[in-house]
Design a protein around this nucleic acid. Structure first.
Length: 779
RNA sequence: GCGAGAGUGGCGAAACUGGCAGACGCACCAGACUUAGGAUCUGGCGCCGCAAGGCUUAGGGGUUCGAGUCCCCUCUCUCGCACCA
């Protein structure tokens, strides 16, 4: 509908940085765009009963009006809109580049399905088991979906983070999301059930022969050192081997369990505290001990991580321990800490410590430390082809299919003769057909399937009958490359104009919300890397510098329509003006932390700007210029010039207010030369007023062409300072002294102050003297 | 549970490497000027106390001549992830 103060807070901080860079003499490109594809916009259109194709342009007009009146230094010639065919043509082109690189593929997968929005969601869009958009609990569905192989880039996405000038919290969030974990894949050979039942001896293990049987279970572990304590295996209920290894006696029970867990939605499965499982009737050989161990199925093992199977070490893993207790499975100690003997029972809780611990009950590996044991065991098992070191990532491939209407159609055609065929680039865009009823249904198929004329097409290869892909792509794909397009919006023949690309990219300063830490920013980095590897862009990281701005709350609470505490920027701009509103937003708290919006607070900033106005209109052009005012001016220029680049906008405003107070103290009328630099300093915050005052002062060109005022380092330093004087570490008074005062002079000055001298009861035993700062006498 | 961040006056907040805690602003109090206004200007404003002085940065301990800042413990709040083997 329109702007939220949070948007304006983000934009203003960005704009101040841009305007400051311009004052510094740089050429600044500050573009603006609209990203109105996606479920959010479509749901809103459904809610108000309009077609998004009509509604969105109208709302964009409103947004643009609000942005323009808030005074952003935007180059509107470069405006773009992701819903415009001239833009999504290239979104489809990006898809095709990934397809060509083998990075886009279709597979049937258990996916997150939102029953309200009736679409698939990416893992990143599921928050605590619920749909990020509508809050409905997400279900599991098995559907054919398009994926991007972002996991191929996991290592690089992680490694590159170290070199980026980004907010540390954002980098940490990405690291955690990628979730690198180093361990090993270990092979457990499944024993033939009949054979095992018939023979007591099974030869296997490190010391014997590895039996050759057709079935093996691969597990991922980060604790290969504990393998001697692996007393059972657990498969996820969806594991492909479940059916083939289950014994006849256990079949019914297993099938019931699997069916029950399939019905269960992801949330209750992932959040249920109690672990449940069932025995398959099958056994596998522990490759370290050579002993047979039972294979179980349990809901606490997730198919989507690792191999979907684990070796359970109940002695040293909390979850396995809990499960072993519930089902009476053996618990063995293989790691001993201080005070533990080989046969010390594990006890009520799993022993998960590793530091200073040694292996026990682990054959020839006894006595090794945890990390030594890990390496030695993986090496040894590796020699028997039973283990390999593996790096696992928590990150999943990016599911980009959406069974919805309002998005760019995925440019693929299905031909009975040729199979899936990418739409040739010269036939892009695949236009989104105009559908009267665009609402999604529960079929799992996009509404686009109902656009029969559009749906039936011809194969680009053989010209035979073919059908179009009916899924549209995730809206995060639209925003994963938009910054690359801005400099080239005038080019319809290529996605990127090479010269403009070179001039403006990568993005030097990017400011966004924390909500983008793992979604948008990770996807944008991935797409940039892919386009870089394909030779289209010459950098592989899109954003040189990223800073996350904070959140604006109101009276200590998050703004929401239901609480009725939402700030409508239009109201405040109408009442106070865009400049006061902008400056107040920057003043209310540290930019990277956000702050509390208090309606009354604006008046202070308004007073400051009014005083600036009067300072110009009333300024004198002759008379004295006091050195104190001069010094304060130069100090302020220095401080504001240092604060803005580090986004310390609140202290920059405070510094300018201080200078104003100095300049006008005691009803003093400022000299015009004292006011002029202040107008320049204020201009990034309050561009309209500054521009007008600049003109009133007789300048023919823009204040933003005037350059940032210079300060004289010699004038910044105070030559007389106020020093704190402490006696026994307690401050007892101050002295005024030259900056370069010597210790004995300072003491003499201090002793002349009765309030200080009365605490000095004898000759000082010790004197700490920090020149120009403080004096401490210990008596 | 794990990860990230935060706790400073009545309120929003400053204090960049340990050196006068509370800059700047809101609110409040007193005063000036008033063609009475949501204007402007001056002064005051952490807490206790008449004062001298004492106390004070969530709480407790420590290092130091000196701690909001460094170290250890505890508590509270916000956000993110959540059976990741």
């Amino acid at each position: 509908e329109g702007l939220h103060v949070g948007n304006l807070f983000a934009f203003t901080g960005n704009d101040i940085y841009g305007r400051f860079q311009r004052l510094q003499g740089h050429t600044v490109f500050e573009p603006f765009g609209f990203d109105a594809f996606g479920i959010h916009s479509e749901n809103y259109a459904i809610k108000v009963g309009m077609h998004p194709g009509e509604l969105i342009p109208r709302n964009i007009d409103n947004f643009r009006r609000q942005v323009q009146r808030s005074g952003l230094m935007v180059d509107w010639r470069r405006e773009l809109s992701t819903t415009d065919p001239s833009y999504y043509k290239w979104t489809q082109w990006v898809f095709l580049q990934l397809y060509k690189q083998g990075l886009a593929y279709k597979k049937a997968a258990a996916v997150n399905w939102c029953p309200f929005d009736k679409t698939v969601l990416a893992n990143e869009q599921v928050i605590g088991g619920a749909c990020e958009r509508c809050g409905t609990l997400v279900e599991q569905r098995f559907l054919e979906q398009w994926f991007f192989r972002i996991t191929d880039y996991a290592g690089r996405l992680l490694a590159n983070l170290d070199g980026l000038d980004w907010s540390e919290a954002t980098k940490t969030a990405q690291r955690n999301w990628i979730g690198k974990s180093e361990g090993a894949q270990i092979v457990f050979v499944v024993q033939d059930v009949m054979e095992f039942a018939g023979s007591a001896t099974v030869s296997a293990g490190l010391s014997g022969e590895v039996s050759v049987t057709p079935t093996e279970v691969r597990v991922f572990t980060t604790r290969a050192d504990t393998i001697f304590g692996a007393t059972y295996l657990v498969l996820s209920p969806e594991h492909p081997l479940v059916d083939s290894i289950t014994s006849d006696e256990q079949r019914e029970e297993v099938q019931q369990f699997v069916a029950a867990s399939a019905r269960q939605d992801l949330v209750s499965r992932k959040t249920s505290k109690k672990k449940s499982g069932v025995f398959t009737g099958a056994y596998a050989t522990n490759p370290a001990t050579g002993e047979p161990i039972p294979i179980w199925i349990a809901d606490y093992v997730l198919m989507e991580y690792g191999t979907g199977a684990i070796m359970a070490v109940p002695g040293h893993d909390e979850r396995d321990h809990e499960f072993a207790l519930a089902y009476d499975l053996p618990i063995v100690r293989v790691i001993a800490g201080e005070g533990h003997a080989t046969d010390t029972p594990v006890g009520d809780e799993a022993f998960t410590e590793t530091v200073g611990c040694r292996l026990v009950n682990s054959g020839r590996f006894n006595g090794l430390t945890v990390s030594e044991g890990m390496t030695a065991i993986v090496t040894e098992l590796g020699a028997h082809h039973a283990a390999i070191p593996v790096v696992n990532y928590r990150l999943h491939d990016w599911c980009i299919s959406r069974q919805r209407y309002w998005g760019p159609p995925i440019p693929i055609v299905y031909c009975d003769m040729c199979g899936p065929v990418p739409v040739p680039e010269d036939q892009l865009p695949v236009l989104l057909p105009d559908l009267e009823d665009f609402r999604p249904d529960d079929s799992g198929v996009s509404p686009l399937a109902r656009a029969t004329e559009w749906y039936h097409t011809t194969c680009p290869v053989c010209a035979g009958p073919a059908r179009r892909e009916t899924d549209v792509s995730d809206t995060f794909l639209d925003s994963a490359w938009y910054f690359l397009r801005y400099p080239s919006t005038d080019r319809d023949d290529v996605p990127f104009d090479p010269a403009m690309m070179k001039k403006w990219l990568p993005v030097h300063s990017y400011i966004g919300g924390n909500e983008h830490a793992v979604l948008h920013l990770l996807y944008a980095r991935f797409v940039t890397m892919v386009l870089h590897d394909a030779g289209f862009v010459d950098f592989d990281e899109p954003f040189v510098r990223f800073r996350a701005h904070g959140m604006i709350v109101r009276d200590g609470a998050k703004m929401s329509k239901s609480k009725g505490n939402v700030v409508n920027p239009d109201e405040y701009i109408n009442e106070w003006g865009a400049d006061a509103f902008r400056t107040y937003l920057m003043f209310l708290g540290p930019y990277e932390e956000g702050g509390d919006f208090q309606s009354k607070g604006i008046s202070g900033v308004k007073r400051f700007l009014d005083r600036l106005w009067r300072s110009v209109t009333d300024a004198r052009t002759d008379g004295e210029r006091e050195p104190e005012v001069q010094r304060k001016l130069h100090q302020t220029i220095k401080k504001v010039g240092e604060d803005i680049p580090r986004l310390s906008y609140n202290t920059a405003v405070a510094a300018m207010m201080e200078y104003m107070n100095t300049m006008r103290s005691g009803e003093r009328t400022p000299h015009i030369d004292e006011v002029r630099p202040l107008v320049q300093m204020v201009s990034p915050f309050a561009p309209h007023i500054a521009e007008e005052l600049w003109s009133v002062m007789g300048n023919a060109t823009s204040v933003f062409e005037s350059g940032w005022p210079a300060y004289d380092p010699a004038l910044v330093v105070e030559n007389t300072v106020t020093m704190a004087v402490q006696v026994n570490g307690k401050t007892r008074g101050t002295i005024s002294a030259p900056k370069t005062v010597a210790e004995d002079e300072a003491i003499a000055l201090a002793m002349a102050v009765p309030a200080i001298a009365k605490f000095v009861t004898g000759p000082p035993k010790k004197v700490i003297f920090v020149p120009g700062r403080m004096l401490n006498m210990v008596v």
